[in-house]
């Protein structure tokens, strides 16, 4: 659905994206993850036909983004970073305007449908200028959905939303992602973890790595950390756990819990549990602490800056 090959964009002397190559298939939600200024928005702008690349090619739904820009635009729904809204229009008027620009038959019906998709149907006749940030974001999303695009490109779709709305929007996006292609950018990593089938980590205009969120996590985590909590006093617990085969480190936390670490290949949890119970402790909780995507992300982006320094 989306094919990007050697895409490069220069802003004057500064290279915003550098030889970017990736694909996104139909029915796939791809997350674009990177710090600010990594080139996420630039890539999305090129894919939507807003500006041409300096070098390289990109096709969306089989059409070249430069040569067949209008065909691409017809098939893409785009929510830019700054939500493009006319404050002097009502939500319905705005969506009808966008629907008519996209030559949709029965504009009013479709405008209502996309308002329903983002749960704003009861505010259809309110002026956009009176909307909260979350509502504006949702109107923007409704606009991107109105022509039922094959490809949806969303630049930070959940920014400014409250937690309940984030869940809602995630569900909407996941629903769409079942049979269409969604490319979304975010710098909130848990978001990529929740929504995306695949994550592209981009830093300084280059793709650092690309994988499923789960694989990323397991690939980078050499060891597993587990937090353990017992009722009452945990004195002497450390010594017991240390003796268990496979356990590398044990650490008492100030809140009374104990955190231990073992190698990824050797699951020491059953033995630890046994040792704890045999020691007369009442085991309340044992929970893995995954290396969060945040840490992976920092790790990866730091690696690339080191690489650059080294070269």
């Amino acid at each position: 659905m989306i094919r990007v090959n050697g895409l490069t964009k220069d802003y004057g002397a500064r290279r915003a994206i550098d030889n970017l190559t990736f694909d996104a298939e139909q029915g796939e939600i791809v997350g674009f993850l990177g710090p600010n200024g990594a080139g996420k928005t630039t890539t999305m702008r090129i894919l939507t036909g807003y500006m041409p690349p300096t070098d390289g090619t990109a096709t969306v739904a089989g059409y070249d983004v430069v040569e067949e820009s209008l065909e691409v635009r017809r098939r893409v729904g785009y929510l830019p970073e700054t939500v493009p809204l006319y404050n002097d229009m009502t939500a319905l008027e705005y969506l009808k305007f966008m629907a008519s620009l996209r030559r949709i038959p029965d504009t009013e019906q479709r405008a209502y449908e996309s308002l329903e998709a983002v749960n704003l149907e009861d505010r259809a006749d309110s002026f956009i200028g009176t909307f909260s940030k979350g509502m504006r974001q949702r109107v923007g999303l409704a606009q991107a959905l109105i022509h039922r695009p094959e490809v949806l490109i969303l630049d930070e779709p959940t920014i400014g939303l409250d937690p309940a709305q984030i869940v809602e929007i995630r569900n909407v996006i996941r629903e769409i992602g079942k049979d269409r292609t969604v490319l979304l950018s975010t710098h909130i990593l848990s978001e990529a973890q929740h929504m995306c089938d695949r994550v592209l980590i981009i830093n300084k205009g280059k793709i650092v790595t690309e994988d499923t969120p789960e694989n990323l996590q397991s690939r980078l985590v050499g060891s597993q950390r587990v937090v353990l909590r017992v009722r009452g006093d945990s004195d002497g617990l450390n010594a017991r756990i240390t003796k268990v085969k496979g356990v590398r480190t044990v650490e008492s936390k100030p809140d009374g819990s104990v955190e231990f670490e073992f190698g990824a290949g050797e699951d020491a949890r059953p033995q630890v549990a046994k040792a704890v119970v045999q020691g007369g402790y009442e085991l309340l909780e044992m929970r893995p602490v995954g290396m969060s995507l945040e840490e992976i992300f920092l790790e990866l982006t730091r690696e690339t800056s080191d690489d650059i320094k080294a070269s």
Binding site: G49, R73, P80, T82, P84, L85, Y86, L101, R102
Partner: peptide
Amino acid sequence: RMGTLELLLTAPVR
């Protein structure tokens, strides 16, 4: 200024 130019330039409009 409003960011809507991006909308119009990415809509199927010449």
